[in-house]
Amino acid sequence: MIEPKTRRDQNREVRHAAIVSAARDAFLEHGYAATSMSTIATKLGGSKGTLWAYFPSKEDLFTAVIDDVTASFRQNVREALRPGRDCYTTLLDFAERFLMKLLQPDSIRLHRLIIGEAGRFPEIGRIFYTRGPQVVLEQLSAYIRTQMDAGVLRSADPVQAAMSLIQLSQVQQSLRLWGVVDGARVEDVGDHAIEALNLFSRAYAP
């Protein structure tokens, strides 16, 4: 039996969420280097000591932010790759959801932050990768392996195959990261996903 949460536990959860939300806004607006624990504490109207009671370091706080911004997408990926549908429909669903996430303004800002600052702060690159791209790669490659085993896709390295589909989908994100293209219409996302999946399907047809 799950014990009901106490008022104190509930208050801590609310405070934790408020800290993560404030930190997310600060990191995306100012970058990792320019965001300090003192700045976030001031924004929240509390002391730095209180903030440290929740997160012992800026790296821990950044990790919580990445977990927060990727949580719903990880669930989205699991939903897209659920069993019971044909391979093309499943992978198209994945590609559309993946592209839609990549092209969201906050996703663009986060990727620019990682690209711009991971050279000086390699820890943020590792944190982002293990909680975002690596999880997606593992889930997608596990699904592709089942389709290869069933003969729906030709036998190959499922991890490399998953990377191929991910990279084909990321072309549109790159154009936005570089400022070449602005915005993303839902109908365009569908077209880009179909194009990426058709190329993937031709490469891995049995």
Rank of each mutant, 00 (worst) to 15 (best):
P83E: 14
L28E: 04
L113Q: 02
L92C: 04
L61W: 00
I166E: 01
R202G: 05
P206H: 05
A156D: 11
I114C: 06
G46L: 05
D157P: 02
I115D: 13
H192G: 00
T35E: 04
L51Q: 02
V69D: 00
I108G: 03
R145C: 05
F98S: 04
A22M: 09
I194E: 15
I66R: 00
H16A: 09
S174F: 13
R112D: 07
P83Q: 09
Y88N: 03
P206S: 08
S38K: 12
R15S: 14
D191F: 09
G116H: 06
A203S: 09
L113Y: 05
E29Y: 05
R8M: 10
G84I: 06
V186D: 14
V14I: 15
A95E: 02
V152C: 03
S36R: 02
M100N: 13
E138G: 06
G151L: 06
E138H: 09
A22K: 00
E3V: 12
I127Q: 04
A26T: 10
R15H: 11
R74T: 11
L61P: 00
I40V: 14
F94Y: 15
G31M: 07
I115E: 13
V152G: 00
T42H: 08
D106Y: 06
R154E: 07
F27E: 01
V20M: 08
P133D: 12
L137P: 00
P122D: 11
A184Q: 07
D67M: 09
G183Q: 03
Y32L: 11
Y143D: 06
G151W: 04
A118Y: 04
A18L: 15
L44Q: 02
N198A: 11
E187S: 15
D25I: 04
F27R: 03
V189A: 15
V77M: 04
H16D: 15
R202W: 06
A205P: 00
D149N: 11
A22F: 01
I124H: 01
V159K: 05
M37V: 10
S21E: 15
